[in-house]
C-alpha cells in the first residue's frame, strides 16, 4: 500500500501536541536504531521503538497510537540512557499513551484484571500500572 505524505500530515496538530507533551523534538532522531537494539521489551512489541518515532516524523500519529508498543514500554530508560541524540523516548511514549487514552479511553479495564493474582502484587505495581494505563 502506498502511503500519501503531505505537509498537512507531516506538520499536523497531533505531531505538534506530541512534541509539546513530551518536550521532545521528534526530528532529532536520526534512526540509528540503538533504542530498538537495546529495548528489553522489544520482543513483545509489534513495532520497534524507532519505528514509533518514525511514524510520528511521518505524521502518521494514528498508526503510532494503534501500536501495542506504546503499552509495552516500561519507561526503563535504557533507550534514553544510550541515545546518541538525547531523545527522551520514554517521554515520547508517555505522550503517545496520554493521547491514545484521551482519544479512546483507558487502556486497562480494572474490572477485568485477575483479582486473585492482583492480591499478590506489591502496591506500587498497581499505582504505577494505573497511572500508565488509565487516564
Amino acid at each position: 500500500m502506498r502511503v500519501t505524505i503531505s505537509v498537512e500530515q507531516v506538520r499536523s496538530e497531533w505531531v505538534r501536541r506530541i512534541e509539546e507533551v513530551s518536550g521532545q523534538d521528534v526530528m532529532a532522531c536520526y534512526h540509528c536504531g540503538k533504542c530498538s537494539a537495546g529495548c528489553p521489551a522489544a520482543e513483545v512489541m509489534d513495532l520497534l521503538p524507532n519505528q514509533i518515532i518514525r511514524l510520528v516524523q511521518l505524521g502518521q500519529v494514528e498508526r503510532a497510537l494503534e501500536s501495542q508498543t506504546i503499552w509495552y514500554c516500561a519507561a526503563c530508560q535504557t533507550c534514553y540512557a544510550r541515545c546518541p541524540k538525547g531523545v527522551d523516548l520514554p517521554r515520547l511514549m508517555e505522550a503517545l499513551r496520554e493521547l491514545a487514552m484521551q482519544k479512546r479511553g483507558d487502556h486497562l479495564e480494572i474490572a477485568r484484571l485477575d483479582v486473585q493474582a492482583l492480591a499478590e502484587f506489591p502496591q506500587q505495581a498497581f499505582i504505577a500500572g494505573f497511572r500508565k494505563y488509565t487516564a
Binding site: P40, A41, V44, W71, Y72, A74, A75, C76, T78, H107, L108, L113, L118, F121, A125, F126, A128, G129, F130, K132, Y133
Partner: peptide, 12 residues
C-alpha cells in the same frame, strides 16, 4: 541494569 518488566506485569 536490565529491566525486570516493572508495571508491565499488571497488564501482561
Amino acid at each position: 541494569g536490565e529491566c525486570c518488566g516493572a508495571y508491565l506485569t499488571v497488564k501482561s
